[in-house]
């Protein structure tokens, strides 16, 4: 692969990794505070998986940049400024109630399943291999959230109301899934990555139907004005500050 394309692909992967890292961060906040002991374990699992996925993508990104796989991911996570993160806003929103977290997980995982299916066919083999491995874990995530969404959507009046409120809040942000990742156009043309917009079409159809079956009303609303991955809510700086607080006490230390 030529240098320029390697560079572009690493940017793409770091953005993917940022999504996983930030979502995993939010999931991990449930550890010790979940509604059922078994869900403490389940959400910790989601978090472990997502952060594990982030690590894999950062490592491949580091490789493409000619950087050290063992140290560069931590430099990216702990020593970038919030404005340098390329995650979508959907994942940085605070964890909210359990309806919000569970539904966000579903919306994101349903899209990720499609993206990973496509990435596992990538013409760039190292990428395809990692995507295939991550995909097996994601199938389980989807099973977990597909179990809970209808239970909460149809369970009681209160759970239904909470889910509908969560959906109304999340839906505009979920439209951001359609926005291209950094470098996507060129990489897509080269057969390395899929088109987010095309995946989004499939995702909308599948997800809307599933949500309706779970008793929820999906309203078509205009997306947020700015879906670009370089724009963030005020929640991201706070999250990054927390995330980096120990590592930055001593930047030279090996933690």
């Amino acid at each position: 692969m030529e240098r320029a394309r390697q560079y572009a692909l690493s940017g793409y992967l770091i953005a993917l990794a940022d999504d996983e890292l930030i979502l995993g961060h939010r999931d991990s906040e449930w550890t010790g505070h979940a509604p059922i002991l078994e869900e403490d374990i389940a959400f910790a699992n989601l978090a472990l998986d997502e952060i594990g996925h982030a690590k894999l993508w950062y490592e491949l990104g580091a490789d493409l940049l000619g950087q050290d796989k063992t140290t560069y991911p931590d430099r990216l996570v702990y020593f970038r400024e919030p404005a340098q993160f390329r995650n979508m806003q959907l994942v940085e929103l605070p964890k909210g109630d359990w309806a919000f977290s569970t539904l966000r997980q579903y919306l994101f995982d349903a899209f990720e399943a499609l993206r990973l299916e496509a990435l596992s066919q990538s013409s760039y083999t190292p990428l395809a291999e990692i995507a295939a491995r991550i995909r097996t874990e994601e199938l389980y995530h989807l099973r977990h959230s597909q179990a809970w969404v209808p239970r909460l959507g149809l369970g009681t009046e209160e759970s239904h109301a909470r889910m509908q409120a969560a959906l109304d809040a999340l839906w505009p942000y979920a439209q951001g899934l359609a926005a291209p990742l950094p470098g996507e156009q060129d990489l897509h043309a080269a057969g390395i990555v899929p088109s987010s917009a095309a995946l989004f079409e499939r995702w909308s159809g599948e997800v809307s139907q599933f949500l309706v079956e779970a008793g929820l009303q999906v309203e078509l609303r205009s997306p947020l004005a700015d879906m670009h991955r370089s724009s963030h809510s005020e929640h991201l700086p706070a999250l990054i500050h927390d995330l980096q607080s120990v590592a930055r006490l001593d930047p030279e230390a090996i933690w």
């Binding site: 078994e38 374990i41 389940a42 699992n45 099973r143 977990h144 179990a147 239970r151």
Partner: peptide
């Protein structure tokens, strides 16, 4: 043993609790 209101959740809980 796991606690769950139905079989599907029992299966998910079993996996999360016992196959860490």
């Amino acid at each position: 043993t796991v606690h769950a209101p139905d079989a599907e959740l029992a299966m998910l809980n079993a996996r999360d609790v016992f196959v860490r």
